[in-house]
């Protein structure tokens, strides 16, 4: 026999799935929302997203090379691009660039690489960066530009968002169609529910994620806000407005479903989704911040190891006691 054979135990073939494939599909799924953001918020959205993505990639490369001293680059897996895109999507389109860079540094440096890189981070890196910016620069982070100022960046006119109006001026909320298409103020990637839902379809079609987390979050929010609305329709907005406003869609489709920080089992994912939905509603309706999605996801990220411990998959042949 001429050839030198490999030996290893079964299985001898691989399905061909890879980290890169998954990440590239997530990026593809984010593209509709990115295009929508540029259409809605103009050049500002483009500048912020580009800065965020590039600085995230740069920081990942620098830390990998000079702090962790690893020989192989991890840029190729695409996770830094996703973190950069998600971070940008959570920022207003008129935010100063130095803040974007700071956010990227916190997201990649503290949120991800400090724990050893992709796979080891307990919290969603993009959200770590976003929340850091939110508590550091609350006013810049909560003054969102009015849509359709195509060429305006730092000089864009700002206005209140649907979530900000909620509870005070329920009658001046934008129409459902405007909210669905994203013609409202808000962080640059979160407003267009249509684009985000297209992203969800792509993710589900490529089997990158399963339906459990997004559906359980959205259902929980709809049910809880629906109850409050039925109790008092004057103070509380209706469930559809809640579903379409703020970062709920973006968070439940792209942030909560992050592989590393979400539970491993189907039932665990449902509990995780319910937890996020519940916390989001609590913060939205009773908290001092108008939007609670980021905090809700981060809190449930912290609970994920416990969920993994409690929620075991249904074992074959083991009958429920």
């Amino acid at each position: 026999m001429a050839q030198k054979l490999y030996i290893s135990t079964s299985p001898h073939v691989h399905g061909g799935d890879s980290i890169e494939k998954n990440m590239h599909w997530v990026i593809t799924a984010l593209l509709p929302a990115f295009i929508a953001s540029v259409i809605i918020f103009g050049i500002g959205a483009l500048i912020v997203t580009a800065t965020s993505v590039l600085s995230c990639m740069l920081f990942e490369w620098l830390i990998n090379r000079y702090l962790l001293k690893r020989s192989s680059s991890t840029l190729g897996d695409g996770s830094a691009i996703i973190t950069g895109m998600l971070l940008a999507f959570n920022l207003p389109s008129n935010i100063p660039l130095y803040m974007v860079v700071m956010g990227s540094l916190v997201a990649i440096g503290i949120g991800k690489m400090a724990f050893g890189g992709l796979g080891n981070n307990p919290f969603n890196p993009a959200l770590v960066g976003r929340v850091f910016l939110l508590v550091s620069f609350p006013s810049r982070m909560t003054s969102w530009p009015v849509p359709h100022q195509m060429l305006a960046y730092s000089d864009a006119v700002t206005a209140a968002t649907p979530l900000g109006l909620m509870g005070y001026q329920n009658d001046s909320l934008p129409s459902y169609l405007d909210m669905f298409l994203g013609n409202t103020g808000g962080s640059l990637g979160e407003t267009c529910a249509l684009a985000l839902l297209i992203g969800l379809v792509i993710l589900l079609w490529r089997k990158v994620i399963t339906w459990h987390i997004p559906v359980s979050i959205l259902l929980t929010v709809a049910v809880l806000t629906g109850i409050m609305w039925l109790v008092n329709p004057v103070t509380y907005a209706d469930p559809l407005t809640h579903l379409l406003s703020g970062g709920l869609m973006l968070g439940s489709i792209f942030m909560a479903t992050d592989y590393v920080t979400s539970p491993m089992t189907k039932n665990g994912m449902v509990w995780y989704g319910i937890g996020i939905g519940f916390l989001t509603v609590i913060i939205r309706l009773f908290g001092s911040y108008p939007e609670g999605m980021s905090f809700a996801i981060l809190i449930m990220n912290a609970v994920t190891p416990l969920i993994n411990n409690w929620c075991k998959p249904k074992r074959f042949g083991l009958t429920e006691k």
Binding site: K4, L5, Y6, I7, S8, T9
Partner: peptide
């Protein structure tokens, strides 16, 4: 070395294949 071992990098795992490289 007649063959190349391609499994998990541990002698304990490699030993389960009985024959080696």
């Amino acid at each position: 070395r007649l063959r190349a071992y391609d499994g998990a990098g541990s002698c304990a795992v490699a030993a389960m294949m009985n024959g080696g490289t």
